[in-house]
Amino acid sequence: MTGRRRWATEEILDTAAELLRTSDAESFSVRKLAAALGTDSSSLYRHFRTKTELLRAVADRILAAAMDDYRPEGDWKQRLTALALRLREAFGQQPQLASIWGRYASSGAGSRMVMEEVLQALRSSGLPDKEIPARYHRLVVLIAALIAAEAGVGTLSPDEREQGMELFRVAVLGADPEHFPALAHFARDVRPLGADRHAAFEEILAAHLADIEAGLP
């Protein structure tokens, strides 16, 4: 009698990433992953103790792939900007995984490489060592939030996007000046959250790095 196939960890993560392209972390389950692999859940728990551990591993692969051929260039601001844009591009190709990174974090090799580069870049800026951990945390939280927000828009279908635009137009252009005077005043200039996120990403990041620079001794 032929035994059930043993799946390698990388094959499991490949299949999990593929499933997550068309779903999200809430609807994803180890049982669905096992079914896609033609095995049972118990065999997967030999590789990952929990669903959260599995999701962290999937997100870490994105980080590791983004850092694969990364070479730091330029000053500390250029390094951090290049790194953030590189991560945005990596998760932009798999937007469902962006929120997983922000929510579950990671302790794998990819995460360590990102942490090392951010900390080294901040240290080269001239910040005192005692300030770097807090600055690191705020910067990574900002980058993860911006990537997740941008990726969230990327998962919408054209119909969902158009429906959202129509609701936005109704809510903003139809605002009652008596109850919403500022909204009515700026109605024709206010843009929906999904508009021009690429430029917004870079401007917000640049402003944060400028704030760090302003506090340098």
Rank of each mutant, 00 (worst) to 15 (best):
R5T: 13
R6H: 11
R6S: 12
W7S: 12
A8I: 04
A8T: 10
T9P: 00
E10G: 04
E10T: 10
I12Q: 04
T15L: 02
T15Y: 01
A16G: 01
E18L: 06
T22R: 15
D24C: 05
A34T: 04
A35G: 05
A36P: 02
T39W: 04
D40N: 13
K51E: 03
A57S: 12
I62K: 05
A65G: 08
D75A: 09
K77E: 12
R79T: 01
L80T: 05
T81N: 11
L83S: 09
L87S: 02
E89K: 13
F91E: 00
Y104P: 02
S106H: 04
G108S: 11
G108K: 15
E116L: 01
V118Y: 03
L119W: 04
S124D: 03
S125E: 03
L127W: 01
L127F: 00
K130P: 00
I132Q: 05
P133M: 09
R135S: 04
Y136L: 03
H137Y: 07
H137S: 13
H137I: 08
R138P: 01
L142Q: 09
A144E: 15
G152N: 14
G152K: 14
T155F: 03
L156T: 09
E160G: 14
E166Q: 15
E166Y: 06
F168G: 05
F168E: 06
F168D: 06
A175N: 04
A175R: 04
E178Y: 09
F180D: 10
A184L: 07
A184T: 08
A187I: 05
R188V: 06
D196I: 06
R197F: 06
R197P: 01
L205D: 09
A206N: 15
L209W: 10
A210G: 07
G215H: 13
L216C: 08
P217G: 11
P217H: 14
